[in-house]
Design a protein around this nucleic acid. Sequence first.
DNA 1: GCCGCTCGGCTACCATACAAGTATGGAAGC
DNA 2: GCTTCCATACTTGTATGGTAGCCGAGCGGC
Lengths: 232, 232
Amino acid sequence: MASTRQQVYEQLRARIIRLDLEPGSALSENDLAAELGVSRTPVRESLILLGEEGLVDVYPQLGTFVSRIRIGDVASAQFVREALELAALRDAVGEAGPRDIVELRRLVRAQEDAAQDGDSEGFFRFDEAFHARLMAVGGHAAAWQVVAGAKAQLDRARRLSLPLTQQMPLLIGQHGAVVDLLEAADGPAAEESLRGHLRLVFGDVERIRARHPELFTEDGPAPRPRRKPAGR
Amino acid sequence: MASTRQQVYEQLRARIIRLDLEPGSALSENDLAAELGVSRTPVRESLILLGEEGLVDVYPQLGTFVSRIRIGDVASAQFVREALELAALRDAVGEAGPRDIVELRRLVRAQEDAAQDGDSEGFFRFDEAFHARLMAVGGHAAAWQVVAGAKAQLDRARRLSLPLTQQMPLLIGQHGAVVDLLEAADGPAAEESLRGHLRLVFGDVERIRARHPELFTEDGPAPRPRRKPAGR
DNA sequence: GCCGCTCGGCTACCATACAAGTATGGAAGC
DNA sequence: GCTTCCATACTTGTATGGTAGCCGAGCGGC
Protein backbone atom coordinates (compact mmCIF):
# COMPACT_ATOMS: atom_id res chain seq x y z
CA MET A 1 0.00 0.00 0.00
CA ALA A 2 1.19 3.47 -0.87
CA SER A 3 2.11 5.89 1.85
CA THR A 4 -0.48 8.19 3.31
CA ARG A 5 1.35 11.16 1.94
CA GLN A 6 1.30 9.81 -1.58
CA GLN A 7 -2.41 9.10 -1.41
CA VAL A 8 -3.17 12.55 -0.10
CA TYR A 9 -0.90 14.14 -2.66
CA GLU A 10 -2.44 12.32 -5.59
CA GLN A 11 -5.96 13.03 -4.47
CA LEU A 12 -5.34 16.73 -3.98
CA ARG A 13 -3.49 17.01 -7.25
CA ALA A 14 -6.28 15.27 -9.13
CA ARG A 15 -8.89 17.49 -7.53
CA ILE A 16 -7.00 20.62 -8.43
CA ILE A 17 -6.39 19.63 -12.03
CA ARG A 18 -9.99 18.52 -12.48
CA LEU A 19 -10.96 21.96 -11.17
CA ASP A 20 -12.88 20.22 -8.45
CA LEU A 21 -10.99 22.65 -6.24
CA GLU A 22 -11.38 26.07 -7.78
CA PRO A 23 -8.43 28.37 -8.34
CA GLY A 24 -8.38 30.96 -5.59
CA SER A 25 -10.12 28.85 -2.99
CA ALA A 26 -8.49 28.44 0.39
CA LEU A 27 -7.06 25.16 1.61
CA SER A 28 -6.55 24.62 5.30
CA GLU A 29 -4.17 21.97 6.54
CA ASN A 30 -6.47 21.34 9.47
CA ASP A 31 -9.64 21.08 7.43
CA LEU A 32 -8.09 18.81 4.84
CA ALA A 33 -6.62 16.59 7.51
CA ALA A 34 -9.98 16.25 9.19
CA GLU A 35 -11.77 15.65 5.91
CA LEU A 36 -9.35 12.98 4.79
CA GLY A 37 -9.10 11.39 8.19
CA VAL A 38 -5.36 11.79 8.56
CA SER A 39 -3.09 14.07 10.53
CA ARG A 40 -1.73 17.37 9.42
CA THR A 41 1.70 16.01 8.58
CA PRO A 42 1.02 14.19 5.31
CA VAL A 43 -1.37 16.93 4.26
CA ARG A 44 1.21 19.58 4.91
CA GLU A 45 3.91 17.68 3.05
CA SER A 46 1.60 17.24 0.09
CA LEU A 47 0.83 20.93 0.02
CA ILE A 48 4.53 21.72 0.00
CA LEU A 49 5.01 19.50 -3.04
CA LEU A 50 2.02 21.02 -4.79
CA GLY A 51 3.50 24.40 -4.04
CA GLU A 52 6.69 23.40 -5.84
CA GLU A 53 4.61 22.48 -8.86
CA GLY A 54 2.89 25.83 -8.78
CA LEU A 55 -0.53 24.34 -8.18
CA VAL A 56 -0.98 26.00 -4.80
CA ASP A 57 0.39 29.18 -3.28
CA VAL A 58 1.48 29.00 0.34
CA TYR A 59 1.59 32.20 2.33
CA PRO A 60 3.25 31.69 5.71
CA GLN A 61 0.97 32.31 8.67
CA LEU A 62 -1.73 33.31 6.26
CA GLY A 63 -3.04 30.45 4.30
CA THR A 64 -2.70 28.12 1.36
CA PHE A 65 -4.69 28.74 -1.78
CA VAL A 66 -5.28 26.89 -5.00
CA SER A 67 -3.26 28.98 -7.42
CA ARG A 68 -4.97 30.87 -10.14
CA ILE A 69 -3.80 29.98 -13.61
CA ARG A 70 -0.88 32.24 -14.38
CA ILE A 71 -0.86 33.02 -18.07
CA GLY A 72 2.90 33.37 -17.95
CA ASP A 73 3.18 29.86 -16.58
CA VAL A 74 0.87 28.54 -19.24
CA ALA A 75 2.96 30.11 -21.98
CA SER A 76 6.09 28.74 -20.40
CA ALA A 77 4.57 25.28 -20.13
CA GLN A 78 3.60 25.46 -23.76
CA PHE A 79 7.14 26.33 -24.77
CA VAL A 80 8.60 23.50 -22.73
CA ARG A 81 6.12 21.03 -24.02
CA GLU A 82 6.55 21.99 -27.63
CA ALA A 83 10.33 21.96 -27.47
CA LEU A 84 10.50 18.57 -25.80
CA GLU A 85 7.83 16.79 -27.76
CA LEU A 86 9.12 18.01 -31.09
CA ALA A 87 12.70 17.11 -30.24
CA ALA A 88 11.57 13.67 -29.15
CA LEU A 89 9.60 13.26 -32.35
CA ARG A 90 12.70 14.06 -34.41
CA ASP A 91 14.45 11.21 -32.65
CA ALA A 92 11.45 8.94 -33.11
CA VAL A 93 11.31 9.21 -36.88
CA GLY A 94 13.12 6.25 -38.31
CA GLU A 95 13.18 4.51 -34.98
CA ALA A 96 9.51 3.66 -34.85
CA GLY A 97 8.88 -0.04 -35.28
CA PRO A 98 5.63 -1.73 -36.26
CA ARG A 99 4.83 -2.41 -32.60
CA ASP A 100 5.07 1.29 -31.82
CA ILE A 101 2.73 2.20 -34.63
CA VAL A 102 0.23 -0.42 -33.57
CA GLU A 103 0.28 0.76 -30.01
CA LEU A 104 -0.14 4.41 -30.96
CA ARG A 105 -3.07 3.55 -33.24
CA ARG A 106 -4.63 1.60 -30.39
CA LEU A 107 -4.44 4.65 -28.15
CA VAL A 108 -6.00 6.84 -30.83
CA ARG A 109 -8.89 4.42 -31.16
CA ALA A 110 -9.33 4.27 -27.40
CA GLN A 111 -9.51 8.01 -27.33
CA GLU A 112 -12.10 7.99 -30.09
CA ASP A 113 -14.25 5.61 -28.11
CA ALA A 114 -13.96 7.72 -24.98
CA ALA A 115 -14.96 10.82 -26.94
CA GLN A 116 -18.00 9.15 -28.41
CA ASP A 117 -19.08 7.91 -25.00
CA GLY A 118 -18.75 11.41 -23.63
CA ASP A 119 -16.13 10.10 -21.22
CA SER A 120 -14.01 13.21 -20.97
CA GLU A 121 -11.96 11.74 -18.16
CA GLY A 122 -10.98 8.87 -20.42
CA PHE A 123 -10.32 11.31 -23.22
CA PHE A 124 -7.71 13.05 -21.13
CA ARG A 125 -6.20 9.83 -19.88
CA PHE A 126 -5.68 8.46 -23.37
CA ASP A 127 -4.45 11.82 -24.57
CA GLU A 128 -1.73 11.70 -21.94
CA ALA A 129 -0.93 8.11 -22.78
CA PHE A 130 -0.61 8.95 -26.47
CA HIS A 131 1.82 11.78 -25.98
CA ALA A 132 3.80 9.81 -23.43
CA ARG A 133 4.10 6.87 -25.78
CA LEU A 134 5.13 9.13 -28.61
CA MET A 135 8.05 10.37 -26.59
CA ALA A 136 8.93 6.86 -25.51
CA VAL A 137 9.34 5.81 -29.15
CA GLY A 138 12.27 8.14 -29.51
CA GLY A 139 13.76 6.79 -26.31
CA HIS A 140 12.77 9.75 -24.20
CA ALA A 141 10.23 8.25 -21.83
CA ALA A 142 11.92 9.84 -18.85
CA ALA A 143 11.59 13.30 -20.32
CA TRP A 144 7.83 12.83 -20.37
CA GLN A 145 7.84 13.39 -16.64
CA VAL A 146 9.16 16.87 -17.25
CA VAL A 147 6.43 17.54 -19.76
CA ALA A 148 3.84 16.19 -17.36
CA GLY A 149 5.02 18.57 -14.68
CA ALA A 150 4.92 21.58 -16.93
CA LYS A 151 1.63 20.51 -18.41
CA ALA A 152 -0.24 20.61 -15.11
CA GLN A 153 -0.92 24.31 -15.47
CA LEU A 154 -2.13 23.83 -19.01
CA ASP A 155 -4.42 20.98 -18.12
CA ARG A 156 -6.50 22.95 -15.69
CA ALA A 157 -7.45 25.30 -18.47
CA ARG A 158 -8.09 22.47 -20.88
CA ARG A 159 -10.68 20.94 -18.60
CA LEU A 160 -12.82 23.95 -19.27
CA SER A 161 -11.98 23.92 -22.91
CA LEU A 162 -13.33 20.51 -23.65
CA PRO A 163 -16.97 21.09 -22.74
CA LEU A 164 -17.06 22.91 -26.00
CA THR A 165 -16.17 19.59 -27.47
CA GLN A 166 -16.51 20.07 -31.16
CA GLN A 167 -12.75 19.99 -31.14
CA MET A 168 -12.41 16.48 -29.82
CA PRO A 169 -12.63 14.82 -33.25
CA LEU A 170 -10.23 17.36 -34.68
CA LEU A 171 -7.66 16.71 -31.98
CA ILE A 172 -7.97 12.98 -32.38
CA GLY A 173 -7.62 13.32 -36.11
CA GLN A 174 -4.39 15.20 -35.61
CA HIS A 175 -3.10 12.40 -33.46
CA GLY A 176 -3.84 9.98 -36.26
CA ALA A 177 -2.10 12.21 -38.77
CA VAL A 178 1.04 12.33 -36.67
CA VAL A 179 1.10 8.55 -36.47
CA ASP A 180 0.66 8.26 -40.23
CA LEU A 181 3.53 10.63 -40.92
CA LEU A 182 5.66 8.89 -38.34
CA GLU A 183 5.02 5.58 -40.03
CA ALA A 184 5.92 7.12 -43.37
CA ALA A 185 9.11 8.42 -41.75
CA ASP A 186 8.37 11.89 -43.03
CA GLY A 187 10.10 13.83 -40.30
CA PRO A 188 9.46 17.45 -41.25
CA ALA A 189 5.80 16.86 -41.98
CA ALA A 190 5.29 14.92 -38.75
CA GLU A 191 6.95 17.72 -36.83
CA GLU A 192 4.81 20.37 -38.44
CA SER A 193 1.72 18.33 -37.78
CA LEU A 194 2.50 17.85 -34.12
CA ARG A 195 3.41 21.50 -33.75
CA GLY A 196 0.05 22.51 -35.16
CA HIS A 197 -1.66 20.14 -32.80
CA LEU A 198 0.08 21.53 -29.74
CA ARG A 199 -0.53 25.11 -30.80
CA LEU A 200 -4.20 24.41 -31.25
CA VAL A 201 -4.41 23.24 -27.68
CA PHE A 202 -2.65 26.37 -26.59
CA GLY A 203 -4.99 28.58 -28.56
CA ASP A 204 -7.90 27.17 -26.62
CA VAL A 205 -6.54 28.63 -23.44
CA GLU A 206 -7.04 32.17 -24.66
CA ARG A 207 -10.65 31.42 -25.49
CA ILE A 208 -11.19 29.92 -22.07
CA ARG A 209 -9.65 32.90 -20.43
CA ALA A 210 -12.18 35.16 -22.05
CA ARG A 211 -14.98 33.03 -20.65
CA HIS A 212 -13.64 32.45 -17.15
CA PRO A 213 -11.37 35.35 -16.27
CA GLU A 214 -11.78 34.68 -12.56
CA LEU A 215 -9.67 31.54 -12.82
CA PHE A 216 -6.70 33.42 -14.24
CA THR A 217 -4.32 36.01 -12.95
CA GLU A 218 -2.08 38.53 -14.60
CA ASP A 219 1.12 36.71 -13.81
CA GLY A 220 1.82 38.20 -10.39
CA PRO A 221 2.45 35.39 -7.90
CA ALA A 222 -0.78 36.59 -6.29
CA PRO A 223 -0.94 40.10 -4.92
CA ARG A 224 -3.91 39.72 -2.59
CA PRO A 225 -4.87 36.40 -1.07
CA ARG A 226 -8.07 37.74 0.50
CA ARG A 227 -9.50 35.33 2.96
CA LYS A 228 -13.04 34.28 2.18
CA PRO A 229 -15.05 32.91 5.10
CA ALA A 230 -17.34 31.10 2.65
CA GLY A 231 -19.21 29.15 5.32
CA ARG A 232 -20.12 25.60 4.57
CA MET B 1 14.76 35.90 6.99
CA ALA B 2 14.02 32.79 5.06
CA SER B 3 12.29 29.87 6.68
CA THR B 4 14.29 27.19 8.40
CA ARG B 5 13.18 24.69 5.85
CA GLN B 6 14.45 26.76 2.96
CA GLN B 7 17.81 27.26 4.60
CA VAL B 8 18.19 23.58 5.32
CA TYR B 9 17.06 22.69 1.82
CA GLU B 10 19.47 25.02 0.11
CA GLN B 11 22.36 23.94 2.24
CA LEU B 12 21.77 20.25 1.67
CA ARG B 13 21.24 20.77 -2.04
CA ALA B 14 24.45 22.72 -2.36
CA ARG B 15 26.37 20.11 -0.45
CA ILE B 16 25.07 17.32 -2.62
CA ILE B 17 25.77 19.09 -5.88
CA ARG B 18 29.25 20.10 -4.77
CA LEU B 19 29.81 16.42 -3.97
CA ASP B 20 30.53 17.46 -0.42
CA LEU B 21 28.06 14.71 0.39
CA GLU B 22 29.11 11.68 -1.60
CA PRO B 23 26.68 9.66 -3.66
CA GLY B 24 25.70 6.58 -1.73
CA SER B 25 26.27 8.00 1.72
CA ALA B 26 23.50 7.76 4.27
CA LEU B 27 21.59 10.76 5.54
CA SER B 28 19.69 10.52 8.79
CA GLU B 29 16.94 12.93 9.74
CA ASN B 30 18.10 12.74 13.31
CA ASP B 31 21.76 13.32 12.63
CA LEU B 32 21.17 16.18 10.23
CA ALA B 33 18.75 17.84 12.61
CA ALA B 34 21.27 17.63 15.41
CA GLU B 35 24.10 18.83 13.22
CA LEU B 36 22.17 21.81 11.90
CA GLY B 37 20.64 22.64 15.25
CA VAL B 38 17.04 22.37 14.12
CA SER B 39 14.27 19.89 14.61
CA ARG B 40 13.58 16.95 12.36
CA THR B 41 10.59 18.55 10.66
CA PRO B 42 12.35 21.02 8.35
CA VAL B 43 15.04 18.44 7.66
CA ARG B 44 12.48 15.86 6.73
CA GLU B 45 10.60 18.24 4.47
CA SER B 46 13.82 19.20 2.75
CA LEU B 47 14.70 15.57 2.15
CA ILE B 48 11.30 15.00 0.61
CA LEU B 49 11.90 17.84 -1.82
CA LEU B 50 15.37 16.58 -2.65
CA GLY B 51 13.84 13.19 -3.24
CA GLU B 52 11.50 14.71 -5.83
CA GLU B 53 14.52 16.15 -7.60
CA GLY B 54 16.21 12.78 -7.64
CA LEU B 55 19.11 13.96 -5.53
CA VAL B 56 18.36 11.58 -2.67
CA ASP B 57 16.66 8.21 -2.50
CA VAL B 58 14.29 7.68 0.40
CA TYR B 59 13.58 4.12 1.44
CA PRO B 60 10.77 3.97 3.99
CA GLN B 61 11.80 2.54 7.33
CA LEU B 62 15.28 2.01 5.97
CA GLY B 63 17.09 5.21 5.35
CA THR B 64 17.76 8.13 3.07
CA PHE B 65 20.81 8.11 0.83
CA VAL B 66 22.46 10.56 -1.47
CA SER B 67 21.55 9.13 -4.84
CA ARG B 68 24.20 7.75 -7.09
CA ILE B 69 24.34 9.40 -10.47
CA ARG B 70 22.01 7.48 -12.72
CA ILE B 71 23.36 7.47 -16.23
CA GLY B 72 19.85 7.24 -17.57
CA ASP B 73 18.94 10.40 -15.70
CA VAL B 74 22.01 12.16 -17.02
CA ALA B 75 21.12 11.26 -20.59
CA SER B 76 17.57 12.39 -20.00
CA ALA B 77 18.75 15.65 -18.48
CA GLN B 78 20.99 16.21 -21.47
CA PHE B 79 18.09 15.69 -23.85
CA VAL B 80 15.89 18.09 -21.94
CA ARG B 81 18.57 20.68 -21.70
CA GLU B 82 19.51 20.51 -25.34
CA ALA B 83 15.93 20.65 -26.55
CA LEU B 84 15.03 23.63 -24.39
CA GLU B 85 18.16 25.66 -24.83
CA LEU B 86 18.22 25.20 -28.58
CA ALA B 87 14.54 26.05 -28.91
CA ALA B 88 15.07 29.15 -26.80
CA LEU B 89 18.04 30.13 -28.90
CA ARG B 90 15.94 29.91 -32.04
CA ASP B 91 13.55 32.41 -30.50
CA ALA B 92 16.43 34.59 -29.35
CA VAL B 93 17.95 35.10 -32.78
CA GLY B 94 16.65 38.38 -34.12
CA GLU B 95 15.31 39.37 -30.72
CA ALA B 96 18.66 40.03 -29.11
CA GLY B 97 19.26 43.71 -28.51
CA PRO B 98 22.59 45.43 -27.86
CA ARG B 99 22.00 45.30 -24.12
CA ASP B 100 21.60 41.54 -24.27
CA ILE B 101 24.84 41.13 -26.17
CA VAL B 102 26.70 43.36 -23.76
CA GLU B 103 25.40 41.47 -20.77
CA LEU B 104 26.28 38.10 -22.26
CA ARG B 105 29.80 39.28 -23.09
CA ARG B 106 30.15 40.53 -19.54
CA LEU B 107 29.27 37.10 -18.21
CA VAL B 108 31.77 35.44 -20.53
CA ARG B 109 34.51 37.75 -19.28
CA ALA B 110 33.55 37.13 -15.68
CA GLN B 111 33.83 33.44 -16.34
CA GLU B 112 37.25 33.91 -17.90
CA ASP B 113 38.44 35.75 -14.82
CA ALA B 114 37.11 33.05 -12.53
CA ALA B 115 38.86 30.40 -14.58
CA GLN B 116 42.18 32.19 -14.48
CA ASP B 117 41.89 32.65 -10.73
CA GLY B 118 41.23 28.96 -10.34
CA ASP B 119 37.87 29.85 -8.82
CA SER B 120 35.91 26.85 -10.00
CA GLU B 121 32.92 27.80 -7.87
CA GLY B 122 32.73 31.10 -9.67
CA PHE B 123 33.21 29.33 -12.99
CA PHE B 124 30.10 27.30 -12.38
CA ARG B 125 28.12 30.25 -11.14
CA PHE B 126 28.83 32.33 -14.21
CA ASP B 127 28.25 29.34 -16.44
CA GLU B 128 24.76 29.03 -15.00
CA ALA B 129 24.19 32.74 -15.32
CA PHE B 130 25.25 32.71 -18.96
CA HIS B 131 22.93 29.92 -19.99
CA ALA B 132 20.08 31.40 -17.96
CA ARG B 133 20.54 34.77 -19.61
CA LEU B 134 20.69 33.20 -23.01
CA MET B 135 17.28 31.69 -22.49
CA ALA B 136 15.94 34.94 -21.10
CA VAL B 137 16.82 36.72 -24.34
CA GLY B 138 14.32 34.63 -26.22
CA GLY B 139 11.71 35.36 -23.58
CA HIS B 140 11.99 32.00 -21.90
CA ALA B 141 13.42 32.86 -18.53
CA ALA B 142 10.83 30.76 -16.77
CA ALA B 143 11.82 27.67 -18.71
CA TRP B 144 15.32 27.98 -17.30
CA GLN B 145 13.96 26.67 -14.04
CA VAL B 146 13.10 23.45 -15.80
CA VAL B 147 16.58 23.19 -17.21
CA ALA B 148 18.07 23.92 -13.81
CA GLY B 149 16.07 21.10 -12.30
CA ALA B 150 17.11 18.62 -14.93
CA LYS B 151 20.68 19.84 -14.84
CA ALA B 152 21.21 19.00 -11.19
CA GLN B 153 22.13 15.42 -12.04
CA LEU B 154 24.54 16.56 -14.70
CA ASP B 155 26.23 19.07 -12.49
CA ARG B 156 27.34 16.58 -9.92
CA ALA B 157 29.34 14.81 -12.60
CA ARG B 158 30.68 18.05 -13.96
CA ARG B 159 32.23 18.97 -10.64
CA LEU B 160 34.57 16.08 -11.09
CA SER B 161 35.11 16.87 -14.73
CA LEU B 162 36.52 20.31 -14.21
CA PRO B 163 39.61 19.41 -12.21
CA LEU B 164 40.90 18.28 -15.54
CA THR B 165 40.51 21.87 -16.49
CA GLN B 166 42.20 22.16 -19.80
CA GLN B 167 38.67 22.38 -21.10
CA MET B 168 37.75 25.56 -19.31
CA PRO B 169 39.13 27.88 -22.01
CA LEU B 170 37.51 25.78 -24.70
CA LEU B 171 34.11 25.96 -23.03
CA ILE B 172 34.39 29.68 -22.51
CA GLY B 173 35.44 30.15 -26.11
CA GLN B 174 32.33 28.34 -27.20
CA HIS B 175 30.23 30.69 -25.13
CA GLY B 176 31.85 33.59 -26.90
CA ALA B 177 31.22 32.02 -30.28
CA VAL B 178 27.55 31.59 -29.53
CA VAL B 179 27.27 35.24 -28.58
CA ASP B 180 29.02 36.30 -31.78
CA LEU B 181 26.71 34.23 -33.93
CA LEU B 182 23.72 35.47 -31.99
CA GLU B 183 24.79 39.04 -32.62
CA ALA B 184 25.23 38.25 -36.30
CA ALA B 185 21.73 36.78 -36.25
CA ASP B 186 23.01 33.62 -37.88
CA GLY B 187 20.46 31.24 -36.42
CA PRO B 188 21.56 27.88 -37.81
CA ALA B 189 25.21 28.45 -37.00
CA ALA B 190 24.45 29.65 -33.51
CA GLU B 191 22.31 26.60 -32.94
CA GLU B 192 24.99 24.26 -34.17
CA SER B 193 27.54 25.96 -32.05
CA LEU B 194 25.47 25.71 -28.90
CA ARG B 195 24.65 22.12 -29.65
CA GLY B 196 28.30 21.30 -29.92
CA HIS B 197 28.97 23.04 -26.66
CA LEU B 198 26.30 21.13 -24.81
CA ARG B 199 27.36 17.82 -26.30
CA LEU B 200 30.92 18.44 -25.23
CA VAL B 201 29.78 18.85 -21.67
CA PHE B 202 27.85 15.64 -21.96
CA GLY B 203 30.83 13.80 -23.36
CA ASP B 204 32.79 14.64 -20.26
CA VAL B 205 30.41 12.62 -18.17
CA GLU B 206 31.46 9.38 -19.81
CA ARG B 207 35.07 10.13 -19.12
CA ILE B 208 34.29 10.90 -15.50
CA ARG B 209 32.37 7.71 -15.17
CA ALA B 210 35.40 5.71 -16.20
CA ARG B 211 37.40 7.39 -13.47
CA HIS B 212 34.89 7.29 -10.67
CA PRO B 213 32.56 4.37 -11.30
CA GLU B 214 31.57 4.23 -7.64
CA LEU B 215 29.59 7.43 -7.99
CA PHE B 216 27.40 6.03 -10.74
CA THR B 217 24.80 3.34 -10.96
CA GLU B 218 23.43 1.31 -13.81
CA ASP B 219 20.10 3.09 -13.95
CA GLY B 220 18.11 0.93 -11.55
CA PRO B 221 16.42 3.15 -8.95
CA ALA B 222 18.85 1.48 -6.58
CA PRO B 223 18.32 -2.21 -5.97
CA ARG B 224 20.38 -2.51 -2.80
CA PRO B 225 20.76 0.38 -0.42
CA ARG B 226 23.30 -1.43 1.73
CA ARG B 227 23.57 0.26 5.03
CA LYS B 228 27.10 1.29 5.74
CA PRO B 229 27.96 2.05 9.36
CA ALA B 230 30.88 4.13 8.12
CA GLY B 231 31.74 5.56 11.48
CA ARG B 232 32.64 9.20 11.67
C1' DG C 1 31.42 -25.45 10.87
C1' DC C 2 27.02 -23.93 8.94
C1' DC C 3 22.14 -22.55 8.85
C1' DG C 4 17.91 -20.43 10.88
C1' DC C 5 15.80 -17.55 14.30
C1' DT C 6 15.27 -13.98 17.69
C1' DC C 7 16.14 -9.64 19.34
C1' DG C 8 18.10 -5.01 19.62
C1' DG C 9 18.81 -0.80 17.32
C1' DC C 10 17.97 1.95 13.69
C1' DT C 11 15.00 4.10 10.10
C1' DA C 12 11.30 6.97 8.07
C1' DC C 13 6.38 7.77 8.84
C1' DC C 14 2.57 9.69 11.11
C1' DA C 15 0.32 12.06 14.99
C1' DT C 16 0.23 15.62 18.17
C1' DA C 17 1.68 19.75 20.86
C1' DC C 18 3.50 24.25 20.94
C1' DA C 19 5.03 28.75 18.89
C1' DA C 20 4.74 32.79 15.92
C1' DG C 21 2.20 35.65 12.90
C1' DT C 22 -2.03 37.65 10.45
C1' DA C 23 -6.71 39.13 9.44
C1' DT C 24 -11.11 39.92 11.36
C1' DG C 25 -14.91 41.67 14.56
C1' DG C 26 -16.14 44.54 17.91
C1' DA C 27 -15.60 47.72 21.66
C1' DA C 28 -13.79 52.14 23.20
C1' DG C 29 -12.68 56.83 22.35
C1' DC C 30 -13.05 61.00 19.49
C1' DG D 1 -20.47 58.22 12.34
C1' DC D 2 -15.56 57.40 12.10
C1' DT D 3 -11.14 55.90 13.65
C1' DT D 4 -8.20 53.25 16.60
C1' DC D 5 -6.99 49.55 19.24
C1' DC D 6 -7.30 45.05 21.07
C1' DA D 7 -9.05 40.31 21.83
C1' DT D 8 -9.70 36.32 19.28
C1' DA D 9 -9.79 32.81 16.00
C1' DC D 10 -7.69 31.40 12.50
C1' DT D 11 -3.24 30.32 9.59
C1' DT D 12 1.42 27.95 8.69
C1' DG D 13 5.96 26.81 10.92
C1' DT D 14 8.56 24.08 14.14
C1' DA D 15 9.35 20.67 17.81
C1' DT D 16 8.57 16.29 19.85
C1' DG D 17 6.41 11.73 20.88
C1' DG D 18 5.08 7.18 19.45
C1' DT D 19 4.67 3.32 15.86
C1' DA D 20 5.60 -0.03 12.15
C1' DG D 21 9.02 -2.04 9.58
C1' DC D 22 13.69 -3.40 8.13
C1' DC D 23 18.61 -4.71 8.92
C1' DG D 24 22.14 -7.15 11.10
C1' DA D 25 24.39 -9.37 14.85
C1' DG D 26 24.49 -13.18 17.92
C1' DC D 27 22.64 -17.31 19.82
C1' DG D 28 20.75 -22.11 19.39
C1' DG D 29 20.22 -26.16 16.70
C1' DC D 30 22.00 -29.35 13.38
